[in-house]
Nucleic acid binder design. Structure first.
Lengths: 142, 142
DNA sequence: GTGGAATGTTAGCCAAGGCTACATTTTTGT
DNA sequence: ACAAAAATGTAGCCTTGGCTAACATTCCAC
């Protein structure tokens, strides 16, 4: 048992707390990018939950400063939310590209990357980036 | 957006539901292996939660058929629980060895592997195993 | 400009996974 | 043997993240 017992699990628990937030801001940014605005309904469909659940989750995101909402208006990201969305989506992309470079089939890579992205330290992400590069240049010699 | 929207997230949510169970049975098996028996206190310390939380989690595990308990007695795994523990710990080990082979520093690898192990499909695990083997044999040429 | 569809809100329910405080049982040390 | 300490159990509370049902608002079409 290296490092203090429990510390790792505390980290995992706090990860969980922000996972949903990350998924939401990432989705919101993507939807705004694609469709101009993001409505609750879009998120409900995306996450396959009821619009009520979306509503309350958005409420927590607003409480925590990630989004701005007005009644009956589309959801907008704050600067903080935008920042989190960017980081999150960059991380997601890294993990996805890494899995593909590793040889994981598309469908599995897409699914797994969404679960894995929330649990990668900078160390791990760096190694993934390095691997992607190496694979890219290795293409020549194959 | 390949595959039906939402289906992935449903999967991620149901993953979450079994994550704790996997972590617990894995820890229980390990503690029994090391110390002969596993008490609630051991788990509370391991996961850095109160003994009350452990107690209730164990209750759910018992309800779901993973463990057997008697009041004031150590926790024991059922066959089902043992099986899950074995699978879980094998997966954990694969992910850990993979991260190390990738070049991730020990500490980060240990932490990340605990979060990642729950989100890897068989496809991904297979690719990880293949990579570990290749790295192993590549040692010779370095 | 009114009615219906789409969207948003509120109320109230549930389970999981946290907690503290207090009661009970078991173990341990003298 | 027995008191103190450690472990376990119980009661009751909280937040998150799900849900349905009922109601309110907005928007578009006609």
């Amino acid at each position: 048992m290296p490092t203090s017992p429990g510390s790792r699990h505390r980290r995992i628990r706090s990860d969980h707390a922000t996972e949903l937030a990350e998924d939401y801001v990432e989705a919101i940014a993507e939807i705004i990018d694609q469709q101009g605005v993001c409505r609750g309904t879009d998120l409900a469909e995306r996450f396959a939950v009821s619009h009520v659940t979306v509503n309350r989750t958005i409420g927590r995101l607003e409480r925590d400063g990630y989004v701005k909402t007005e009644p009956y208006a589309p959801v907008e990201l704050t600067a903080k939310g935008q920042r989190l969305a960017n980081e999150s989506s960059a991380r997601h992309e890294t993990v996805l590209q890494f899995l593909l470079a590793l040889g994981v089939p598309q469908t599995s890579a897409a699914i797994d990357s969404e679960g894995i992205e929330h649990h990668c330290s900078e160390d791990t992400l760096n190694c993934m980036r390095k691997f992607i590069e190496q694979q890219g240049s290795a293409q020549h010699n194959t």
